[in-house]
């Protein structure tokens, strides 16, 4: 009798464990998303050092990130940025969205997702708890360009993001990729 009850308990316990969400390592998600975009759309991102060397328009991003305007929102030194420039982003956006959500759902919370004109413009904002701060991952994709930004926000700036998710999300991307007009 005892054996049967124990077996049932173990079986139920194992089932519960099996149905629990798998927690992935925190460090790799930014790179995974960049790689996912590369594979899904068959494109290549350009790193900041390369941009700086090539003197491309986003080159000033690096300077901005290290100590410029982006710090208004992000914590110093917390920004990860990948830029895809002037490439074709053709593909089933619904499928991409589904893959992205699937890949991140275990550790990131989707806050807001906007799609426009049959996927020509896509914006995804995910949040992840990082102790007394919060990681924010913003993915924007349009017909020719895409950006993946991960920043760490202080509580004050997270409050701004939660109050106006769309506006603050755009501000994070714009500040991280700001073209120097001066």
């Amino acid at each position: 009798m005892k054996t049967i009850a124990t077996k049932i308990f173990i079986a139920v316990f194992v089932m519960c464990l099996a149905s629990a969400p798998v927690v992935h390592g925190k460090g790799d998600d930014f790179n995974s998303v960049v790689k996912m975009i590369e594979e899904f759309y068959n494109v290549k991102h350009v790193g900041i050092p390369f941009l700086a060397k090539a003197g491309m328009k986003v080159a000033t991003t690096a300077a901005r990130i290290k100590g410029g305007t982006a710090r208004r929102l992000a914590e110093a030194g917390s920004i990860k940025l990948a830029v895809f420039e002037d490439q074709k982003f053709n593909g089933d956006f619904a499928k991409f969205r589904s893959s992205l959500n699937q890949a991140l759902h275990a550790t990131w919370m989707p806050l807001i997702q906007t799609l426009s004109a049959a996927g020509e413009e896509q914006t995804y904002i995910f949040l992840r708890d990082a102790g007394d701060k919060t990681n924010v991952l913003v993915v924007t994709i349009d017909e020719r360009d895409a950006t993946v930004v991960q920043v760490t926000l202080s509580q004050k700036n997270l409050a701004l993001l939660l109050k106006d998710p769309e506006g603050t999300g755009k501000a994070i991307t714009e500040e991280a990729t700001l073209i120097d007009q001066e």
């Binding site: 956006f93 619904a94 919370m109 989707p110 806050l111 807001i112 997702q113 906007t114 799609l115 426009s116 004109a117 049959a118 996927g119 949040l127 708890d129 939660l162 998710p165 769309e166």
Partner: peptide, 17 residues
């Protein structure tokens, strides 16, 4: 409907948030 829409917005602020 997202496939036909010119603009789709999806907001999720769950209990944790």
């Amino acid at each position: 409907l997202a496939a036909k829409a010119s603009q789709t917005v999806d907001v999720n602020v769950d209990e944790r948030l």
